[in-house]
């Protein structure tokens, strides 16, 4: 199933990789550079699922997720956080912010696709 994905990461390299992995899987990828930029992009598209980094300037991943969860339009959208740490603490924090799941960087494209399908069909 082809998904419409918004990927938010301040690292250009990571955005390039996400873009490559997502489009290779037949998904449509939309990219944003930080939380605020992500919110702007969301005024124009309706993704099926969102992937977001945590450490970003201007608005970090936690702020971004909280903003989405407190907005009627996005309160239910599946959100995966990208993290280099696999620490439980970080997952707990992501979850309490309202994330649906997480992807550990560097990600395996197949696993990314699997995770996306697990939360968004």
């Amino acid at each position: 199933m082809s998904l419409n994905v918004l990927a938010v990461d301040d690292s250009r390299t990571m955005r390039d990789m996400l873009n490559l992995a997502l489009s290779s899987a037949g998904f449509t990828a939309h990219l944003a550079e930080d939380g605020l930029h992500g919110l702007e992009v969301l005024s124009e598209i309706e993704p099926d699922v969102i992937i977001t980094d945590i450490n970003m300037p201007r608005m970090d991943g936690f702020g971004f997720i909280e903003a989405l969860r407190s907005d009627d339009r996005w309160s239910r959208i599946p959100i995966l956080v990208l993290t280099t740490e696999s620490a439980d603490e970080l997952k707990a924090k992501a979850r309490s912010a309202g994330a649906t799941g997480w992807i550990v960087k560097p990600f395996d494209p197949a696993k990314l696709v699997k995770a996306l399908q697990m939360v968004a069909g």
Partner: peptide, 8 residues
């Protein structure tokens, strides 16, 4: 509320 869906 975390955005998970049993169906998936």
């Amino acid at each position: 509320s975390s955005g998970n869906e049993p169906l998936y």
